[in-house]
Computed example of a mutant assay.
Amino acid sequence: MAKIDLIATAAFGLESIVARELKGLGYDELVVENGRVLFTTDELGICRTNLWLRSSDRVLLRMGSFEARTFEELFQQTKSLPWEEWLPEDANFPVQGKSVKSQLFSVSDCQAIVKKAIVERLKEKYGRNWFEETGPRYQIEVGLLNNKVTLTIDTSGPGLHKRGYRQLAGEAPLKETLAAAMIQLSFWRKERALIDPFCGTGTISIEAALIAQNRAPGLKRSFAAEKWPNIPKTLWQEAWQEALDLWERNVPLHIYGSDIDPNALALARKHAIEAGVDEVIHFQRLPVAEVRSRFKYGHMIANPPYGERLGDVTKVEELYRELGETFNRLDNWSLHMLTTHQFPERLIGRRWDKSRKLYTGRLECHY
């Protein structure tokens, strides 16, 4: 199988987690950059990384990178790339783009030029003048940063946070990819208890169960590259079989989620059923002040309401104080929380050992 350059994209702050996941899959030659991790693999790697990456947003096939300051440079260098190696004659290949701090700042013009260059390349290779684009989808992106162009094809389709178990979401939902990263950053181990005292629709609890069972997060969904004729179906079958073989279904777990919103809890239970982990997660309606545990050691991982989300900073601060009191009653436990509050330590009553800047959407938080 040929060597292929891939990019695993990530929200800012999660690049090291994605790199750790890739190393766990056996991909050691990595380049970590802002918002992405570059690595080299083969066609099977496209299948495996889409199935297994928990904290990455997408897996992109990197067609090429080059400098371009004029539209002519963009056109000629795009046309020089071997698009026919991936795009069949009937390929549906829309182009989207973005430009940051580059002379070619018109995104719409860049998209049109890249599209035209690819069409001209395919005309020469396939000997035809018209392409109906009725076949599989190859979403192409032209990204410009400081006059450097990167051309990619999206292998994932819908973002990797769409695991297939959460069809409905409550207010201000936490992305599955961020929830998985929060768990991995906590270094929680499956032998210990885990409590999410603001569980909402259950994302943290469900992602913890998937991690503990060593279950590939992409098992319940499909990917754009599954329809590509140049990736044999046997490779997807091999990757799926590996994921099924490594799934530890019967691991005993102590995962608890609580919330005061009955509607959110109903969704959490539904999502747990859809994910197939309802028997290993215990959800209950409970205010944070009443959370208790019989376990000596454990991790409390939480995404409490933000002032921006709740619209009432006073209520949020009272919840933080109650969270701090609950945490201080739990002997030998760790607390990991995502917050936008400027001084959460004053409310919790404990200094942080570590803090990391993360983003939920465009909102800057600290974990």
Rank of each mutant, 00 (worst) to 15 (best):
350 R>G: 00
329 R>C: 03
126 Y>K: 03
140 I>T: 14
175 K>G: 10
91 A>H: 04
17 I>Q: 08
134 T>N: 12
294 R>T: 14
234 T>E: 15
361 G>Q: 03
308 E>N: 12
168 L>W: 08
151 L>S: 05
84 E>A: 15
1 M>E: 13
227 K>V: 00
222 S>F: 00
21 E>M: 04
89 E>K: 07
183 I>Q: 03
78 T>N: 04
8 A>Y: 03
226 E>R: 06
361 G>K: 02
85 E>I: 00
357 K>T: 15
182 M>R: 02
365 C>M: 14
101 K>C: 12
50 N>K: 12
93 F>H: 07
84 E>Y: 13
99 S>M: 07
265 L>Y: 06
310 L>N: 04
217 P>R: 08
114 V>Y: 04
276 G>W: 05
317 E>G: 03
232 P>N: 10
22 L>A: 10
338 L>Q: 02
80 S>F: 04
262 P>F: 06
232 P>G: 08
14 L>D: 02
151 L>T: 06
107 V>D: 05
248 E>W: 14
46 I>F: 03
138 Y>H: 14
154 D>Q: 13
216 A>S: 13
181 A>N: 03
277 V>M: 06
259 D>V: 12
57 D>P: 00
331 D>I: 02
66 F>R: 09
18 V>H: 05
233 K>T: 11
27 Y>L: 08
26 G>M: 01
94 P>F: 09
83 W>K: 06
237 Q>M: 15
61 L>N: 01
268 A>P: 08
254 H>N: 14
1 M>D: 14
65 S>M: 10
48 R>M: 13
237 Q>H: 15
242 E>Q: 14
32 V>H: 03
168 L>N: 11
327 F>Q: 01
270 K>R: 15
75 F>L: 11
136 P>C: 07
148 K>Y: 12
105 F>T: 08
17 I>G: 00
31 V>H: 07
254 H>G: 08
7 I>R: 09
269 R>I: 08
240 W>A: 02
78 T>I: 10
306 Y>D: 10
366 H>Y: 14
47 C>T: 08
326 T>A: 12
349 G>Y: 01
203 T>A: 14
133 E>K: 13
28 D>P: 00
136 P>A: 07
165 Y>C: 09
138 Y>E: 11
190 K>T: 10
343 F>A: 01
362 R>L: 10
8 A>S: 12
43 E>Y: 11
338 L>N: 03
124 E>D: 13
57 D>M: 05
276 G>N: 06
299 H>M: 06
139 Q>Y: 06
19 A>Y: 06
87 L>I: 09
255 I>Y: 03
111 Q>P: 02
31 V>K: 12
289 A>K: 04
55 S>D: 07
362 R>F: 09
252 P>V: 12
177 T>E: 08
366 H>F: 15
50 N>R: 12
296 K>A: 06
79 K>T: 00
272 A>S: 12
168 L>K: 14
361 G>R: 02
46 I>W: 02
253 L>Q: 02
